[in-house]
Each structure stands twice: as structure tokens, then as C-alpha cells.
């Protein structure tokens, strides 16, 4: 998912207020920006929604990489529309976080100087056109697993942002799967490219859900607050169960020799990703971390004169209008 290992903040507040707050959440009420909320709830949400927003924005880079090299004009238009949606997702989410008292520019600066994170998945390279298929199918597919239940999250603005996002995600996954179908049914070389993309992106996709958090106190608190709806393992299992038959339909092999249908639990047994690799990636040592952050920093720095210029122009126009009245 797009927000991994979000630490929840411990809260020290009036026990009565806390109990009343929890009762509202348990009753299924939405918490709105001006309602009283524990400081820890606010901080955890800023961290989680911010990380989610950053992932949408940084996530444009590995796909933007292929826009100019899409194989047909139609594929190019589709990919462009998909990447544009992701910019929108980032914006919806930044706005949701902003209702908690942090500004978008502040969050951007925290991303750029490494104080805030984005999903580990976007630190992997997209090497061939087949990766555009695999990313839509697997990465958006994994994101959907997490975002669908989050539509019911307790924080109103986050819930509303998730509802908008989910409306658009199914296009993302389907266009990705359509690319995979085309490749898998193509020449042997094209099918091999599709298999290679699956091989490289399978385990990083499983990592998106984060390490097992069954015993994590952060996770228990976030689940009580309904800002996390399922454990990481639950979502990962669901993702594998949904995705394996889709790979079979493509005639591709999931790169996991231990993969096996377990009739008793009604789900697949599968291998865990390499968690050492995961921790390396989220601490900044993945294959593309430096490149991704450099690209975001460059865009921010190069855009400064535009932001400043438009603001100055708007202020000048406003002054003129006042003077004329």
C-alpha cells in the first residue's frame, strides 16, 4: 500500500474526552476537521495521508518514464491519462491532510528533505514497456486492496478523498492488465518481456503492504481509530489470492516456487518477500531512491520562479482592482 509502517502517536489527553472520541468512531461517525481529536490521531493522520499523497506524486515518475515511448498513440494517450489521474490523487490527498493544519508546501518540503516517506515500490525501475502493464496490474491492484476499505475510514476528508480515488483506480488496473494481455498473447519475445516484468515486480508488490504487523501496537491503535482497516497480512493474502488466477489467465508464472493453494485456509500459501531488501529501500538505498528524490527536488526548484511569479502577478492584480474601486 502507499502508506507503509506509519507510526501512530501515543496520546496523553483527558480520558473522558478520549472515551467520547472513541465512542464516536465505534458508532461509525465521521470525524471532521474542526471536531475535537486526540493530538496523536491528528499527527498519525498527517503522516499517513501525507505519505499516501507523496506516493501518488512520486509514483508518476516510473510511468512518466514511458509516456514518450509508448508503442502506439492510443497507448500513449491512455498512459498519459493514467499518470494525470495520479497527480489528481496526490492533490485530493494533500487537501485532506491540509484540513489537519499542515500546508501542502510544508509536506512537499518534508518529502524533499527526506523527513517524510513515500511507498517503497516507486524506488524500483521500469525497464521495459511490459512494466507499464505490470505496474497497472500489480501496483495499482495492491493500492486498490488498501484504498477500498479506507473509503470507510473515520476521518471525513480522508474518506472522501479515497472515494474519489477508488472511482478512478479500476481504470488504472484494467489498462495495465490489458497491456499484459497484449504482451502475453504476442510474440515469444513479447511474452518473455511480460514474464520478466512479473518476475521483477512480484515481490516488491507484496512489500507494498508492509511487514507483518499482527503484533504492532501502532497498528492496534490505528485500527481502533479506523485509520487502518485491515492488517498488512490480511491485505497481502487477499492480493495474492486475487492475483494468482489473473497471472494464470495470462499464461505467466508467479516467481514463487512455494506458491500453493491451501484448501484448508481457502487461500494461497506463498513466500514472504525479502524484508532486508525492503528495509534497505525505505531507508533510502533502493535502486532508484536517489533518482526519484532528485527528480522531485529539481521539479520543485525549477518551478519556484513560476510559483513566485504567478503569486506576485495575482497580488498586483488584486492591488490594481482595489485602487480602481
Amino acid at each position: 500500500m502507499y502508506a507503509q509502517m506509519v507510526k501512530s502517536e501515543a496520546t496523553q489527553e483527558d480520558p473522558e474526552m478520549l472515551a467520547a472520541f472513541q465512542a464516536r468512531i465505534d458508532a461509525g461517525e465521521k470525524i471532521e476537521p474542526k471536531d475535537w481529536m486526540p493530538a496523536g490521531y491528528r499527527k498519525t493522520l498527517i503522516r499517513q495521508i501525507g505519505q499516501h499523497a507523496h506516493s501518488e506524486i512520486v509514483g508518476q515518475l516510473p510511468e512518466g518514464n514511458w509516456i514518450t515511448r509508448a508503442p502506439t498513440l492510443e497507448r500513449k494517450a491512455i498512459l498519459l491519462a493514467k499518470v494525470q489521474d495520479e497527480a489528481g490523487h496526490g492533490l485530493y490527498l494533500y487537501c485532506a491532510a491540509e484540513t489537519l493544519g499542515v500546508t501542502r508546501d510544508e509536506m512537499t518540503e518534508m518529502l524533499l528533505d527526506g523527513r517524510m516517506k513515500y511507498s517503497s515500490i516507486f524506488n524500483y525501475p521500469t525497464l521495459t514497456w511490459a512494466d507499464m502493464g505490470a505496474v497497472g496490474w500489480l501496483v495499482d491492484g495492491a493500492a486498490i486492496m488498501n484504498q477500498v476499505p479506507l473509503q470507510r475510514t473515520s476521518f471525513g476528508p480522508y474518506s472522501r478523498a479515497m472515494i474519489r480515488v477508488c472511482k478512478e483506480e479500476s481504470f488504472h488496473q484494467r489498462q495495465g492488465y490489458a497491456v499484459m494481455m497484449k504482451m502475453a498473447q504476442g510474440t515469444p519475445a513479447q511474452k518473455a518481456m511480460a514474464q520478466n516484468a512479473l518476475n521483477r515486480l512480484w515481490f516488491p508488490s507484496l512489500m507494498m503492504f508492509g511487514p507483518s504487523d499482527a503484533d504492532s501496537t501502532h497498528s492496534v491503535q490505528s485500527m481502533a481509530w479506523k485509520i487502518k482497516m485491515n492488517t498488512n497480512d490480511e491485505l497481502r493474502q487477499k492480493f495474492v489470492d486475487q492475483t494468482v488466477p489473473q497471472a494464470e489467465y495470462l499464461g505467466l508464472t508467479v516467481p514463487d516456487e512455494t506458491l500453493n493453494w491451501n484448501a484448508e485456509k481457502g487461500g494461497y500459501d506463498f513466500a514472504e518477500p525479502d524484508w532486508d531488501e525492503f528495509f534497505e529501500v525505505i531507508t533510502g538505498n533502493g535502486p532508484c531512491n536517489t533518482e526519484r528524490l532528485a527528480a522531485r527536488n529539481k521539479a520543485w526548484d525549477d518551478g519556484k520562479w513560476v510559483r513566485d511569479g504567478l503569486l506576485a502577478h495575482a497580488q498586483k492584480r488584486k492591488m490594481r482592482k482595489v485602487a480602481a474601486e
Binding site: P33, K34, A39, R42, L100, G101, V102
Partner: peptide, 9 residues
């Protein structure tokens, strides 16, 4: 105002 002035802000 529609949004809160939080301690952070």
C-alpha cells in the same frame, strides 16, 4: 472558518 487553526498552524 471552515478549517481549524491547529496547534501546528
Amino acid at each position: 472558518s471552515a478549517y481549524p487553526d491547529t496547534p501546528e498552524a
